[in-house]
Simulated scan of single mutants.
Amino acid sequence: MNSEEKKVSYQTTNSYSTLNQLTDKTKNVWLVFHGIGYLSRYFIRLFENMNKEENYFIAPQAPSKYYKGEDYRRVGSSWLTKENTTAETENVLRYVDAIVENEKILKQTNFIVLGYSQGVSIASRWIASRKIKCNAYIMISGGFPKELHKEDFDFLTHTTKITHIVGAEDPYFEIEKVEAEKERVKQILPQIQFKTHPGGHELNLESIKAIL
């Protein structure tokens, strides 16, 4: 058997979702990354109760889609797997770059990056590789990429508000592992604050509002 794996580059198109309008009254622009199993148009609805005049949300769409369940009716998506991760990561990051360029975000607004669950890995890598000086970075119920180090975030100032939120009843996070992860991430992002909410593996809007 003479099998060989090759690579080819090509142009592709992907969607993304927005919520509210970007105007001169907008105070906060949010770039929000969903977790595994979501589609961006459903994930972005979780932010509908935020002030519509002050907040504009942009939700990128993970490129890999699949059917959820055996009835083949509901569709979910995933950002990355362990297969060909390096190349796939760069593809995703270039896609995020294209979104930000297309949106022409107003410079006078606060720029907030939020990653939920698997979205934390994409948001963290994008901030680190593109040296994104956001006003705030919120991580929710997600693991921080193992390959990132303190020097990857040296460009951030002490004024960048960084928060990790996890549900007290989150079944995916054992307390011992959470404490160990806290210590590791604290070494990388010294200004990070750790918060909890009373729920499980979910995005809790009240805990997000309390940060701002």
Rank of each mutant, 00 (worst) to 15 (best):
K133V: 00
R130I: 00
I132G: 07
K104S: 07
V113W: 00
A123Q: 08
I112E: 01
I122H: 02
Q118P: 08
T109P: 00
I127R: 02
V113R: 00
Q118I: 08
I127V: 13
G115H: 11
I112A: 00
S124W: 01
S121P: 01
I105M: 13
I105Q: 11
S121T: 15
T109L: 07
Y137L: 12
A128Q: 07
K104G: 03
V113Y: 09
G119W: 09
I127F: 03
I105F: 10
I138M: 11
Q118S: 15
Q108C: 05
V113E: 02
G119R: 12
Y116R: 06
W126L: 12
T109E: 02
G119N: 05
S124L: 06
I112D: 01
G115T: 04
F111H: 13
K104A: 12
K107M: 14
E103H: 09
A123D: 06
I132A: 10
A123L: 08
Y116D: 07
I138K: 13
G119E: 10
L114M: 14
K131F: 04
I140C: 11
Q108H: 15
I127E: 02
E103P: 00
K104V: 04
R130S: 03
E103M: 07
S121G: 04
R125K: 14
V120T: 08
W126G: 01
K107D: 15
K107W: 06
V120M: 07
A128W: 02
K104L: 13
K133T: 12
G115Q: 08
E103N: 01
A123M: 14
I112C: 06
I132K: 13
V113H: 05
I140D: 04
V120S: 07
K133S: 12
S124P: 01
K131V: 05
Y116W: 13
N135Q: 08
Y137S: 02
S117L: 07
S117P: 03
K131Q: 15
S117V: 11
M139D: 09
A123Y: 07
C134M: 10
I105E: 07
N135F: 04
I140P: 00
N135S: 13
A136P: 00
I132S: 09
A136T: 05
V113T: 09
A123P: 09
W126N: 01
I112L: 04
S117I: 12
R125S: 03
K131R: 14
C134R: 00
K107T: 15
Y137A: 04
L106T: 08
C134V: 10
Y137I: 13
Y137N: 01
V113C: 10
S121L: 04
S121E: 11
R125I: 08
A136W: 11
K131G: 06
T109Q: 02
G115C: 08
C134S: 12
K131H: 15
R125M: 11
V120Y: 05
N110I: 03
Q118C: 12
M139V: 15
N135R: 06
S117G: 06
T109I: 06
I112V: 15
L114C: 14
E103I: 04
V113G: 05
Q108N: 15
S129P: 01
K133G: 05
K131E: 14
T109A: 03
S129L: 14
M139Y: 13
N110Q: 10
Y116K: 07
F111Q: 10
Y137E: 00
N110M: 02
L106P: 03
S117Y: 09
M139E: 09
F111G: 00
R125C: 05
I112H: 10
I132C: 05
Q108K: 15
L106N: 11
Q118L: 12
K133F: 11
F111L: 14
S129K: 14
